[in-house]
């Protein structure tokens, strides 16, 4: 991890202003933000370590635990809400046996919600990794999950 990290961090010596792009790049590289990585970011940028965490924990994009192989993001946008997103979320939670914010024990799925993925016309929808599953009903949930059950 150390090498991958220092490769990402090397252009950012003393760059206090670049904290958010740094966090994004480190998360891209490592999948999440381990404590040690945040410490290293603090050292590189010259920011206090508390500040690195303060900023990282403010933004929804950053995670502090490893994610599952697939990330399922249930959209909770308004259009999705009025078209039954809550039931999609419940059904997904039931199918996976976890609640929002958790990762399945086999590290296969992480379940999250997202403010809006901007596919309001196709509501309700769920984003699995990079793909959008549109116009869902609760019954379709097990099916879209099993599609990724490899």
């Amino acid at each position: 991890m150390e090498e991958r990290l220092s490769a990402v961090l090397s252009p950012y010596e003393g760059r206090k202003d670049a904290l958010i792009p740094i966090l994004q790049k480190v998360q891209d590289e490592l999948g999440y933000l381990p404590d040690d990585a945040m410490l290293e970011i603090a050292k590189t940028t010259g920011l206090p370590e508390s500040r690195v965490y303060a900023v990282a924990s403010f933004y929804a994009q950053f995670r502090f635990t490893p994610r599952g192989k697939h990330t399922i993001m249930v959209c909770r946008g308004t259009a999705c809400h009025v078209r039954g997103a809550e039931r999609i979320l419940e059904e997904t939670e039931r199918s996976l046996g976890i609640v929002e914010g958790e990762t399945t024990e086999d590290q296969k799925y992480t379940l999250e919600t997202v403010a809006c993925i901007g596919c309001c016309a196709l509501a309700p929808c769920v984003m699995i990794d990079e793909d959008v599953e549109a116009k869902l009903t609760p019954q379709m949930v097990p099916e879209i999950l099993s599609g990724r059950n490899e």
Binding site: D35, L39, Y53
Partner: peptide
Amino acid sequence: STLANKPIAESR
């Protein structure tokens, strides 16, 4: 919070 909400004694 300290970094990652660690006990304050482990912080700076």
